[in-house]
Design a protein around this nucleic acid. Structure first.
Lengths: 222, 222
DNA sequence: CAATATCAGTTGGATTTGCAACGGATGTGA
DNA sequence: TCACATCCGTTGCAAATCCAACTGATATTG
């Protein structure tokens, strides 16, 4: 029985529905159900399998050394968890994973994923490729955000972000998708401080903006 | 002719020297030399190949919208560049890459990497696996750092870092590898502000430390 | 159209940060 | 042992940040 979560999983992107079942068999996927609130993994567990949320929803939690907990991610049907950990040296997960509602999870061995099957499952290499693409994309997003956030001042963080957006949109005029509060959260700064920095940059003739539309001024403008 | 850079490349970890040459042929690796200062890629180029520094050294540069340049990474023999980009949607690199000395670079198509060869090159799947492992590891490192840096205050950044170290070392007592300046750089804060936060935490009885040895105090201590 | 909600810019005050400088502790080499 | 360098905690101060609150502008809804 194929759940919608498995069909929509980005790991299987490009795999037609009828082809999915053999691929799952090839990966040795095993399904398991959890009650709401039940722990799937505890932080520190040694994990050798990748999890896919087949139906329901799980939370990835971080507990600090003083017992404070913090929700890192909410992963819904189709989402993966533990995908990075299984490839790491220790295999120990730094976070706990709990079902936040009644949930069905699929597990499979990453070794099975990496080893192309002798029966030459046509979509196996596609799954590998999807996995690499997912990692690479996440990597680039993280690196981009890191570059903004490591700047010391709100002003520099903002300029770094706008510069990056301009590069991506290939124009000195562009719209952004964040509202002010979201942008502040993304850059890890206070909203009012962000507004202030924006106003100042406008006064100084470095940028123009109106709502979510921005124009970067400079030597050559546009 | 196999350069030391290619032999030591993490992509080929686990591949014995005599087995490397056929693998390189299988990947379709082509070598190219660049003079010091010569550009290998310009930001915005559409890139479909992964680069390996065979000998010499390259710099990955970021140019912002106002023309300021910034060295993102220095990649020496054995290092990869463009590895994330080729898997992205657009394939456009956000950074420029220039040779910072006379340099030989190998290029290969990521499609050739992903597609296991019909001649069943034994080490091909190992290269794929190495690539996934490299991505996954980088991912986890980035995520960990992100978690510290997104905290608003120096104090919280420090606690987040120490908590994470304690978890990794599986003890409330542990040594860290950074000196103060390096830790400050890692957390993107000022060294003296870091020292101040540390002193305050010590005064409040939350942590103990001496040089690079730390002890986290709390409900249960150790 | 009026009532309401949301978003964004501004302001003021308490706090924190970055920066520069100083001084003590420790280590190193001649 | 002395001179020198490095590392680290501390301090003073200017500047930036956070937080809370207020205001005006712009939807949204009944």
């Amino acid at each position: 029985m194929l759940s919608a979560g498995l069909v929509g999983c980005p790991l299987f992107k490009g795999v037609a529905k009828p082809d999915l079942e053999p691929l799952l068999g090839c990966l040795g996927l095993r399904l398991q159900t959890y009650k709401k609130g039940e722990a799937i993994w505890h932080a520190g567990d040694s994990v050798r399998e990748i999890g896919i949320v087949s139906s329901g929803c799980v939370h990835v939690l971080k507990l600090d050394a003083w017992g404070n907990s913090n929700i890192i991610a909410e992963i819904e049907a189709g989402g993966l968890f533990g995908e990075a950990v299984v490839f790491s040296i220790s295999g120990e997960i730094p976070n706990s994973v709990v079902a936040c509602e009644d949930t069905e999870v699929g597990f499979f061995s990453f070794m099975r994923l990496l080893t192309t099957c002798p029966s030459s499952c046509a979509f196996h290499s596609l799954a590998i490729r999807n996995m690499i693409v997912a990692f690479a994309r996440k990597n680039m997003m993280l690196e981009e955000k890191m570059e903004h956030i490591t700047k010391r001042s709100t002003r520099e963080k903002l300029l770094s972000y706008l510069s990056s957006q301009s590069r991506q949109k290939q124009s000195r005029k562009f719209d952004i998708s964040f509202d002010r509060q979201e942008l502040a959260d993304y850059l890890s700064v206070d909203r009012s401080a962000l507004s202030l920095a924006m106003s100042k940059l406008k006064d100084e003739g470095i940028i123009l903006y109106r709502k979510n539309h921005f124009v970067l001024l400079g030597d050559a403008n546009g």
